[in-house]
């Protein structure tokens, strides 16, 4: 929910109906978690032999099975770089704007 949506509060002392703690599946449920990153994984396509270890080890499901990295949500933990048997992923310092 964006901050803008949050401001659209309903004055609700009359009948608010059935409100309980039910949530719905959503990508980016904790926001653009890519902003947590200090180091960024960068893939060297030539070295990669598509062993899929980075895919399965990524705690955040940010490396797809087709081995593209989603930087919107990648938190930069660095596991992919450490686990890559061919050193095909380097952690590079983020340049903050």
């Amino acid at each position: 929910m964006s901050a803008k949506d949050k401001r659209k509060n309903v004055k609700a002392e009359a009948e608010i109906g059935f409100v309980t703690t039910i949530s719905f599946p959503s990508v980016g449920s904790a926001g653009q978690t890519g902003s947590w990153r200090i180091f960024k994984p960068v893939k060297n396509e030539e070295r990669c032999n598509e062993c899929l270890l980075c895919w399965i080890y990524c705690p955040e499901a940010c490396i797809t099975k087709k081995l593209s990295i989603n930087y919107d949500y990648c938190k930069g933990c660095g596991i992919c770089a450490v686990e890559c048997p061919r050193n095909a992923i380097q952690m590079v310092k983020e340049e903050k704007q």
Binding site: K6, A12, I16, G17, F18, V19, T20, T21, I22, S23, F24, P25
Partner: peptide, 18 residues
């Protein structure tokens, strides 16, 4: 759907009012 995860002060009171 997910029932009963973390709920913040901004959202909780309405659940009780319901």
């Amino acid at each position: 759907m997910t029932h009963g995860s973390v709920i913040y002060p901004d959202d909780y009171e309405e659940v009780r009012f319901s």
